[in-house]
Design a protein around this nucleic acid. Structure first.
Lengths: 226, 226
DNA sequence: GACATATTGCGTACAAATTACGCAATTTTA
DNA sequence: TAAAATTGCGTAATTTGTACGCAATATGTC
């Protein structure tokens, strides 16, 4: 097939979390046609000699300045006509950043890059609304069977933060005490000695996800599940 | 990126099931370099104006004569160097066929196309071993939370067939009686009036997966899970 | 400073789901 | 005709999930 004329791009749906609480996604305003001045998921063409993941990291750095802590391939979108000008197939990824990175990147270039609440999104270029929807569904599903929620929190976090993250993402109430029991029973969290007091109420303990222990347990067939 | 020089292909890992029991995968012997005479997953270049799915259906028909009953995107493999000659990014799919289709295609062209037990595979071209492994993992995981196992059985099947399919795929013993209770409690199977007697033992009832009912239940938030 | 309010951490009773296994019914095979 | 194989249904024990109660410990208010 020497006359194949298909361009390959990557796009990255990057999620962040604030303890407001809200889940947000990183979007850029397009500088060029097509869809000039529309909001879009960051991404771009894959270079001839770089891997798909490298393309994602590079584009994210170039376009948004963000460095992500977690990245996985989401889905490949290739329907003819998804770009009005040429045949473009895009390998979409989804990534997660911690609040600290989040803040930095939010300040970088307010004109072109911006975090949006996933429940209050602008109109998006191309089929990016579909890509984003796919990503949200995946994130929502995945936090129930993979410990990726921790990638959205600080290294050391409060149980109430974790709980709010799950409540917000799953969109339903969770019994605080049962949730805690369930998570703790997995044996993947370390309770730190440090206590934090914010606002009224008894000070809360800090926790940390034990990635090493998680992989040990995974080896033994014990999986994360909520 | 006007000088991008990346070719796009699709590959399809097609699974079948025989009540031996064994899970098998459809492979072809390559006619051309690179990897001439090696076994490989069927696939090929995407045409400029066809969708990725259409490319899969077309290539499968051209190369194997198989028509699949279920298809889903698996993963996109794009590491530079996975094809020794040029940069090729491949969108891999996995598909399932029923035993009837299975038999037909096996007869089509015994020289070039062949079913292999997934536990007794030949050496594969390119990174196809990795693709196949990814597909097997996905299939194994997915039969526990999506009703795709039925796509590997006849429309009307015996409970023991379903049970053996799960035992074979999951690679562990399953209590026959509890398995049956669990599946039946989902309310997605219709018990037919017809009985079948094969070999010794009490004749068994035929069952049928009720896809319409499944989607109804899914709407109501009741999901398939085993 | 005392008291109301908020949040955390732990525990307990009850319901639901899972697991282990017994056994009769009905067929083929010896 | 008896033995062996397979199916279909049931029941008890165990594990897991759910709904709460309540003391401990901070902040906010008067």
């Amino acid at each position: 097939m020497s006359n194949q004329d298909i361009q390959l791009t990557v796009d990255a749906v990057v999620f962040g979390y604030e303890s407001v609480p809200r889940i947000s996604v990183l979007l850029i305003k397009r500088k060029y046609e097509p869809f000039k001045d529309s909001w879009a998921i960051p991404g771009g063409f894959v270079l001839n000699e770089e891997s798909l993941e490298d393309a994602v990291y590079r584009e994210l750095k170039e376009e948004t300045g963000v460095e992500i802590g977690y990245l996985e391939q989401l889905y490949t979108f290739g329907k003819p006509g998804r770009d009005p000008r040429q045949r473009i197939v895009s390998v979409a990824y989804f990534g997660l950043v911690r609040p600290d990175t989040y803040k930095i990147s939010a300040a970088t270039d307010a004109q072109e890059v911006q975090w949006f609440d996933i429940h209050d999104l602008p109109e998006l270029a191309f089929d990016h609304a579909e890509i984003l929807e796919t990503a949200i569904k995946r994130l929502r599903a995945k936090i129930t069977y993979e410990p990726i929620g921790f990638e959205l929190l600080e290294e050391r976090f409060l149980f109430s933060d974790l709980e709010n993250l799950y409540k917000t993402l799953l969109g339903r109430e969770i019994d605080r005490r049962n949730f805690r029991k369930k998570i703790m029973s997995l044996g993947m969290l370390n309770e730190l000695d440090e206590k934090v007091s914010k606002g009224a109420g008894r000070p809360a303990n800090l926790f940390q996800f034990d990635k090493k222990r998680y992989f040990q347990l995974k080896e033994e067939g014990i999986v994360f599940e909520i």
